[in-house]
Design a binder for these strands. Structure first.
Lengths: 213, 213
DNA sequence: GGTGCAATTTTGACACTGTCAAGATGCGTT
DNA sequence: AACGCATCTTGACAGTGTCAAAATTGCACC
């Protein structure tokens, strides 16, 4: 009966009211609540304690579903990679687009994705996650194919003569760097005018595409 | 005489032994000690308390020289901007270099600077500093001319026909994005092999320089 | 030389964080 | 019905940034 009292104290549970002492699907509820909290106040203001309270459980309950705070963040980042990977594959496999259109959509779509989900993108590429051994195996398993797919796309565009360069790996590293850098400068508030996103992306496209001259 | 006892407890003071109760130049000592600590254990592991202990003062002493932890970090970041700005100016004003050489040196030098001072670079562009109103006036005063100078350099290279694009602002935003992105991916450990730095930078140079054909 | 002021430093305290250990609770299986 | 195990809670600890009030000292002025 104790949980009922706790439920009265914090009725603002992201998920539906817990039907019993055991939550049922706390892991999912935590992920949802975490994303909500991050969207409200940013990553820096996310604490496991606030998160637990939001989910209507005690402080240490999350530790039975995530070994660590970092583990939770990696799980959210993994979701982001899945979404981005799916979107990139969709445009690349769209038969109604020319190679040039696909390339332009890759560049603009990448930056747009980061601009529309700044906190999630920050999580996906935050230094705390990738530096050293902080990344979960799940994150690696999801992120690596995403990186690989990027490499394949750019390599194919280069092979078809759409863009310049000679070494495919190096070229794709540069282009990835470009979109990543634009996204970062934008998210971090250094490119203050976020209305210019599309223009900057478009400029990048024209700079990389080889002129047919 | 209390300070003497304190001095015995933590003799590892970055600066020389404090000659009196008043430190003399605690602000400078704190900046030095902070950079040392960051170099040892990274930004995330820097706490004001450890820093104060390292400098041989009490926990709250730093608050009389920096209003905030963020204020301290901004001061370190400002130093980084000054160094980078100086280096960029030096190469740009070097009369023994051609425009193409200057451009290549700008790209490679930028990435090299970030790779050689990863923590400082992280500080200079960390989201916590630029997001919202977290940046000090001093930081703005130092960083803005640095950004401006970058814009001028790239604009001049574009005007001389060395690199493509039409809108100077957009072009320089893309190129800055490229070097920033490469640097970030490198620092955050996503481009694992740091021996490729120069190759990637060089590839970026060749991708941007207009072929004389 | 003594005195008072202002700069500097310290001690104490508070709220908050991540995380561990030990106990409580309830579901599923035997 | 009873046991085991996954799940959740309470209690606790070390660490963090930061504020308020007290202590210490250097310096200018009489």
């Amino acid at each position: 009966m104790r949980w009922y009292i706790a439920s009265m104290k914090s009725p603002d549970r992201t998920q539906t009211a817990r039907p019993s002492y055991h939550h049922g699907d706390l892991r999912q509820a935590l992920l949802l609540a975490a994303k909500a909290l991050i969207a409200e106040a940013g990553i820096d203001n996310l604490s496991l304690r606030k998160l637990a309270e939001r989910a209507g459980v005690s402080r240490t309950a999350p530790y039975h579903h995530f070994s660590d705070k970092n583990d939770l963040l990696c799980a959210i980042a993994a979701q982001g990679f899945r979404r981005r990977h799916q979107a990139a594959q969709d445009t690349f496999n769209d038969p109604s687009l020319t190679a040039a259109q696909k390339f332009a959509e890759y560049i603009c779509g990448y930056v747009r994705f980061a601009a529309e989900n700044p906190e999630e993108y920050e999580l996906m590429f935050g230094r705390n996650i990738w530096k050293q051994k902080h990344s979960t195996q799940e994150l690696l398993d999801v992120a690596y194919p995403c990186f690989q797919h990027q490499l394949e796309m750019i390599t194919s565009w280069q092979a078809s003569g759409l863009i310049g360069g000679d070494n495919p790996l190096r070229t794709s590293q540069v282009i990835w760097g470009t979109v990543h850098g634009i996204a970062k400068l934008l998210i971090d508030g250094i490119y203050t005018d976020s209305a210019q996103i599309e223009e900057v992306s478009q400029c990048a496209v024209t700079l990389f595409i080889k002129k047919a001259s």
